[in-house]
Amino acid sequence: MSLLQTSRRSSAGYADVPAAALPLHFRGVGRAFTDRDQQRQVLQDVDLTVEAGSVVALLGPSGCGKSTLLRAAAGLDTPTSGTVVIGDRPVRGIDDRCAIAFQEPRLLPWRTVRANVALGLPDGTARSEGARLVDELLGLVGLAEHADHRPREISGGMAQRTSLARALARRPGVLLLDEPFGALDALTRMKMQDLLLAVHEASPTTVLLVTHDVDEALQLADRVVVLGRPAGGTAATVSHVVDVPGERPRDRGSVDLARLRGELLESLGVDAHRH
């Protein structure tokens, strides 16, 4: 795959300055929303550790609070109980040790691709150093030739790569991905998954990935965590954890993965034999 090759070639520089991968811990995290005077508990007692440098995928039915958990790690949302800890410091408000890529690219339409990526640079980055890193990241995600285009002039996949590069520009200790490939077509999605693996290989930061795609989770993650509501409960919590064997990139057709796929689908309440 040419995109991947380009990425690999240019990734050496990006890896020169290793981002310090940080562990991410959720300790008894709960979140309730108030909805027309009704308390609605969405998450309860979520205990989860994402080890430094590992990739963890969060799976779960829609509306179960996957994104809420991710937003709590980014400091965009505050849990009603429990704490989120990155490294050895709890998350209080927006945290510059993480970077996030959303399901939508959320690029500034009036800025070029390059300027959008530069938005992710941490405060106090020297101008020349920042420009060098942005150029490197643009090469890494295969957008060097489109650096001066505006977001509306590039495809959805390119926009998502821009969004990923913007997150990487932060050199995050924890990279948070909220269904970043969910809105892409199947082929582009696979390319993006390979790209993410290449990026992770070049600079192995901690990654927490929210997805609703079992195959994507098995392809990318060291560990797959399923969020679900216990029988009779309304709030979701960790219901199933699967450690995925094998080095990445993994063979999409392997028997082991097929077995895990069945197990995960079952934990999501889907009859694996019909799919």
Binding site: L76, I94, D96, I100, R106, L108, W110, L119, P122
Partner: peptide
């Protein structure tokens, strides 16, 4: 609101948020 939130997630606040996102928009 999504753009504003994204910009906030990347550490933009106050005057910089205003001149980077809100005013151009």
């Amino acid at each position: 609101a999504q753009l504003v939130e994204a910009a906030r997630a990347f550490g933009l606040r106050g005057v910089r948020l205003l001149t980077t996102v809100q005013l151009p928009a």
